[in-house]
Design a protein around this nucleic acid. Structure first.
Lengths: 200, 200, 200, 200
DNA sequence: CATGAATGAGTGTTCATTCAT
DNA sequence: TATGAATGAACACTCATTCAT
């Protein structure tokens, strides 16, 4: 590994370290309350050091969001890829993958789907990135309708309804983890079945 | 009315004025960006005056939350009361009332169900208040099962699933109002029908 | 004196105190290096206290400039008023008053006539205020020409030349007080005489 | 050219590049707002690279000042050299050269004669350098007196008065370029004539 | 010779809050 | 009850400079 490569890797690592700290703080303190100082303290650096890696606080959040989108999309795709059988299985797999992403990365899920609003007024993200996940869902729904395993209906309408139910279970579990949920896994299974049945 | 009573009423009015200003600012500026100064400016008082009515910023938010719960519960109850026929109608009415509350009071809905987490770490709210709405839903579900219009099943499980789907559609519409939703009302109707069908 | 009047006066005093500190610091540290913190330290207040009296740093400087203009104009007028005899005396009196203002208020003189440039790009001051002094000079020159004690010539040209020579002696004495000037007062007298002779 | 000599030249070139960038920035952004970062950016080097050529920001400014003095003196000398006839012509030539220097190098003029004060508190410059220009003027004045074209008088007094008037016209034109000056060139000619007449 | 990393001090400003009146 | 004055902490960010490489 050349010195150059070494350095490059270190930069990446440092950037990652910063982002990870930012994500964690975001989760615990709320987006607006994460300050450069706090991030710096968490990684044991001076506040100014961060500016060697990110031009501004906004830049950190931008990168952080893009990370989230990337993980989100990959999670969905991987989930679908694993079950290549029939259209319905693939659709179910995507629904489960969505929920699973949320529960595995609650911080990113919040960032992307829950606290989104005020962020996006300032930070312009490639719109495609945000909707690619939904597009994937739409395709799977259309596929399932074509194969006759889902009642023919307006694809958009059905997809949006499914997204809504997905978001509901994911967001609630993340936001109120201490609510007396009757068996996490059972609830999720039930919800997915109910969703499919509801639009069948 | 005694002087004492009179004063009490004035205090209430002032408190209400403060809270209303806070809610509006919360809606327009985002929760974290609402400051005592801004609230005070909005109601044309000095920042310090507010401290005569609320001990701290937190106290305002607490009261504000309680107001929200109150409106939420009343909305649900009113929705149900209007349709006193059969259990299924009553259940559907409650589902619609829930969504309607969210869309009519997006600020309160966000406060109670979306941005909840960080607030609750500091502000301890009577847990009952938060769950009364869910209890109402549970009762209606049980009722519907008893009347045979809903498949007998674990009441808790079904109720939680329904809440999730309710929250999903409501939160998404609030958080992403500019997403290309296919006909707001149509989507809501579809979602409610799918929810019922899903758990039937 | 009513409480109100008392308070008003205190506010004025505090404002004055702030401005005086600012002027002094400006003189010793240079305009760009005067910070709110330094001003605050000088008057033994917290940096934030200043914001109760001035909305911003710019606001302080604006006020400070306006003070300077006011003193400048008054100095000129007073100087002229004292010698009401003939036009030439009045003109000479104004020239002496100009220099005297500069030497009595070197800080303000610098602010208005020396370091002006970058300030005024941001702070917009009523243009009239800046040029009233020059207008007064112009009037006195015209008067002197009319009375025949000054050679008829372009009033603007002569006035501008006189202003230049006035500024030169004033600015040099302020900027280089330790240069080996041959007798301050003698030099000033000589300069004024030379100026008059030069345009006669 | 030996390697050593070569290196020396490269160092000089780099130093010159830095100084030129600094001068330009000083002119456009104002002296206090020129930072090492900005200088480095302008010449496409890293901020730290500069420290190989100048020990500090102050050092740059010192060199910059010395450059200015050098140009100033040369300008004066050249101006005088061109008109070698009689003493009065030579004196006038020097006056015009002074003003011309100021208008051709407003940035240097400001540095040397206008904003001088605060710099000099920190940067100690060989006093001779600063006063050589004035000495030249003094010599020309003495010469003119000796030749009888200027009234015999205290050489110092007359020279200082002349310098003042020179500085006045130059500084005003630089500091207030947008003031409604009645024909730049005409004003300068008038001023020089008035100055000579004033001390004749 | 040149650079990226890092830092402590400093910038103007906002904030929630306390206190005397 | 209401307010103006005041403050310490915090904010994002810039700066001149040092150091190891």
């Amino acid at each position: 590994m050349s010195t150059n490569e070494r350095r490059k890797k270190e930069i990446k690592e440092m950037k990652q370290e910063i982002i990870e700290a930012a994500v964690q703080l975001f989760l615990s303190d709320g987006y607006e309350n994460v300050s450069m100082r706090k991030i710096a303290k968490k990684i044991q650096y001076s506040p100014t050091a961060i500016y060697n890696y990110f031009a501004s606080k906004e830049e950190i959040l931008k990168q952080l969001l893009m990370n989230g989108y990337s993980i989100f999309l990959n999670s969905l795709k991987e989930g679908v890829a694993k079950s290549e059988e029939d259209a319905l299985s693939r659709l179910k797999a995507s629904l489960n993958a969505y929920i699973h992403f949320g529960l595995s990365h609650p911080d990113y899920y919040r960032l992307i789907f829950i606290e989104n609003l005020h962020l996006l007024q300032k930070i312009i993200i490639d719109e495609d990135d945000r909707t690619k996940g939904f597009q994937l869902l739409t395709e799977l729904v259309a596929e399932a309708m074509n194969e006759g395993v889902l009642k023919k209906n307006e694809v958009q309408l059905v997809s949006q309804s499914l997204w809504a139910s997905l978001h509901g279970i994911t967001a609630l579990l993340i936001t109120f983890p201490d609510f007396g949920w009757s068996d996490f896994d059972g609830l999720i299974r039930f919800q997915v079945e109910a969703m499919i049945k509801g639009v069948s």
